[in-house]
């Protein structure tokens, strides 16, 4: 899968969780937490949505890899390919 597609899939999840935030202006290199109203409960939702929608399991030790859009795409792209 192309990284742009992976980005879109992650963005779709974030848009559903942070409903009242504008997700069109996300800076991919900056931590999501610093741009959007996301707390640890919401990151858990991202993890659960990845499992629900794409059957991707993110172990707790890897949660920090979901910090920014760039790191999400880098971490998740190989998992989408599988």
């Amino acid at each position: 899968m192309e990284t742009t597609e992976v980005r879109q899939k992650v963005l779709d999840i974030i848009a559903d969780i942070a409903m009242d935030d504008d997700v069109t202006t996300i800076d991919d290199s900056v931590a999501l937490r610093d741009q959007l109203d996301l707390d640890s409960m919401d990151f858990l939702d991202i993890v659960m949505e990845l499992k629900k929608r794409h059957k991707i399991i993110v172990p707790e030790a890897d949660y920090p890899k979901l910090a920014s859009m760039d790191s999400c795409v880098e971490y998740l792209t190989p998992k989408f390919v599988q």
Binding site: I17, M19, D39, D42, D45
Partner: peptide, 15 residues
Amino acid sequence: GKPLTKLLKQLRIPY
């Protein structure tokens, strides 16, 4: 970071 906005997000109900 307010309880109300947290709960709306968790329930996915727009404000």
